[in-house]
Design a protein around this nucleic acid. Structure first.
Length: 307
DNA sequence: AAGACGAAAGTGGTTGA
DNA sequence: TCAACAACTTTCGTCTT
């Protein structure tokens, strides 16, 4: 399949080589590492056809099944009047049948309260993912997590919004497309605290495997926002890796570590950005950047001496 | 004057009794 | 439920370029 990116060449360096990072759903310039698009979608079918017959056979009608639609549009409503479509009264036999159907309908309605909640939650997820420019995978994954949360009756006593936002956060973490809790809280209709609580709750209850946040996951986005090039990115990631090998990452906020690594890398490679710039784009304070930076420099000096 | 540095007090969240 | 605690922030004064 020929993939033709909308972008012809990198606006930063003019290179025409791109790397598709499907794990992060980002399109990256092969030369300078600039993130060109974080909305990479593969629109094509997953099969190939060599002639018309095959194409007919392999094309499938209708949308693929998805976790993001609460039912499959199969809801049915039975009228309460005992009349047919012409307004005539139904025959007694027919009336009895309709009566039975109606009773079933009522039973199904019982579950429709939760169906409504689910539909609402899914539309919230939809809204949030599009506001954050997150790829479709994330939407699917978060919807799945949300459904699991409902199954395990975790929504009880908690707001739907906070659970939905928490599911989204978990999905982001899992797919290593890190969005901070604060960022999600910005678009969610629940406060940060509630979301954090719900997140911990569902992560524990569902034992959703979420790798601990890795600072290097935050680096590419920081680099792109600051307009730094791939060299700095590589250096920053290298710094984080060395630091994490030395166990000097645990307990620290990953964003702060990422910011400090970017700062160090920018200084080392003569692309210096101020602590203030980096701190504000990372959403931490200068002080935190400074503290992490000091720690990292100490550790790295030690490593240099040892090796 | 801007940026870097650091001390000290304050804040929000976790943990353990 | 409360107190202790660690990480992080806010604020502000000082030093450096």
């Amino acid at each position: 399949m020929q993939d033709k990116p909308e972008i012809e060449s990198c606006p930063e360096c003019g290179s025409r080589e791109f790397i598709k990072d499907s794990e992060r759903a980002e399109l990256i310039c092969a030369n300078c590492g600039l993130v060109l698009s974080d909305k990479m979608i593969d629109p094509g079918p997953e099969w190939r056809a060599f002639d018309h017959e095959q194409k007919d056979k392999r094309s499938r009608t209708g949308a693929p099944t998805t976790f993001t639609i609460h039912d499959k549009g199969l809801s049915t409503i039975i009228d309460w009047r005992d009349k047919d479509s012409f307004g005539k009264l139904l025959a007694p036999k027919r009336r009895a049948q309709i009566h039975r159907l109606r009773r079933w309908q009522k039973r199904i309605r019982v579950s429709s309260a939760s169906e409504r909640n689910l539909a609402f939650a899914l539309s919230e997820l939809d809204r949030m993912t599009s506001q954050l420019n997150l790829p479709r995978d994330i939407r699917e994954a978060s919807a799945l997590i949300y459904r699991k949360a409902v199954e395990c009756q975790l929504v009880r006593g908690r707001s739907i919004e906070s659970i939905a936002a928490a599911a989204l956060y978990a999905a982001c973490r899992r797919y290593r497309i890190p969005r901070t809790l604060t960022e999600i809280a910005m678009v969610a209709r629940a406060n940060r605290k509630e979301i954090a609580r719900s997140y911990r709750f569902i992560a524990q209850a569902l034992t959703v495997k979420v790798p601990p946040a890795n600072p290097s996951d935050y680096i590419p986005r920081l680099i792109a926002k600051l307009g730094l090039d791939g060299e700095v990115q590589r250096k920053a990631i290298e710094i984080v890796n060395v630091a994490s090998k030395n166990g000097m990452i645990s307990g620290r906020g990953p964003v702060g570590v990422a910011a400090a690594a970017v700062y160090i890398a920018s200084v080392l490679l003569n692309h210096k950005k101020t602590q203030r710039d980096i701190a504000s784009t990372a959403g931490v304070t200068e002080v935190t950047v400074r503290n992490r930076y000091k720690e990292l420099v100490n550790k790295l000096d030690l490593v240099v001496k040892l090796t």
